[in-house]
Design a protein around this nucleic acid. Structure first.
Lengths: 160, 160
DNA sequence: TCCTTATAGTTTGATATCAAACTAATTAGT
DNA sequence: ACTAATTAGTTTGATATCAAACTATAAGGA
């Protein structure tokens, strides 16, 4: 794998610091812009956070606990309570008691939730088309492992 | 070339969609965890957003307008007003009228701001050490170009 | 000059998120 | 079995952010 620009030889402490800031800065901006792009395409009052949960359940199955979801998305339990309340109020999910644990609940997709997810995917079409036109998705494949690694490192070192 | 997993040959529309969701999901989580990690190390009441602005001015010079800063960090003008107010209240920056434009202001670092920046960098030391130990920074170098590209694409297609 | 439009910054109202305190149910240690 | 510790979810209070309306200044065209 060839590379250009910054040499791979050695990075000074200062270079590493600058790199890290750049990395987190870009990540933060991408997150903001990406969220804004998605939000704009979703119906009034619905946020990417809502869509993400529906998407997660459509792809990986429903019947999970709120805690499992807050783990998957790395948000606090309180945030998940809030997000699920929004979905529930709109009838996109159903919250049922968990028979095997009285403290817990299970989250299920409703038909409306599946429909909404499908419609949301459709309405994201133009944004996807734009991305596909401008970005070489094979590069995304190459980049994902580092992102996952970074996420895992950050996740398992929260107490640092 | 392996046959399992995603090959670089061709990606179906569905694979591309899944990739994009994964990408934005990882980015969102990294942003959250990274922000949390940094915030924890900053003094009470100060947020990464404050530090980032100080860092920007230390590295690239002060005397910029709030609008230039909101552009650089891709936040709204209102958000920048709020963030600068926080910095100003703590005496870390000075806001002066812009002699060449009555509508505008200029943002300057104070000595306290420079001191604080230095101290913040120090207090981020352990977090950096952890990252440096766990992450190969050369990989960061390789990943930055795509992140920048993605940021630019998203930035120049806000209206999609 | 006067009027229209554009620009810089502020304000307002809403919301997503976090951290921490709280409640209720389960599990574990003795 | 009983108490202590843990766990799932909710609530509370704070704050960072956004979008949109607003204010004040600047620039341009007739």
């Amino acid at each position: 794998m060839k590379k250009s620009g910054v040499t791979t030889a050695t990075l000074s402490a200062q270079e590493r610091q600058k790199l890290a800031f750049q990395f987190f800065n870009e990540v933060g901006i991408i997150q903001q812009l990406g969220t804004a792009l998605f939000n704009k395409r979703l119906p009034e009052g619905l946020h990417v956070s809502h869509f993400s949960i529906l998407n997660h359940m459509v792809r990986l199955g429903d019947g999970r606990t709120p805690l499992a979801l807050s783990d998957a998305f790395q948000v606090t339990k309180g945030t998940m309570t809030h997000t699920l309340a929004g979905l529930s109020k709109r009838g996109l999910i159903r919250l049922e008691p968990n028979a095997s644990d009285g403290r817990s609940k299970l989250v299920f997709l409703t038909d409306a939730g599946r429909d909404f997810h499908k419609a949301a995917i459709e309405s994201l079409g133009p944004a996807f088309a734009m991305l596909e036109e401008k970005i070489d998705f094979k590069k995304l494949v190459e980049v994902l492992p580092l992102l996952q690694e970074m996420r895992e490192v950050l996740d398992s070192n929260r107490d640092i």
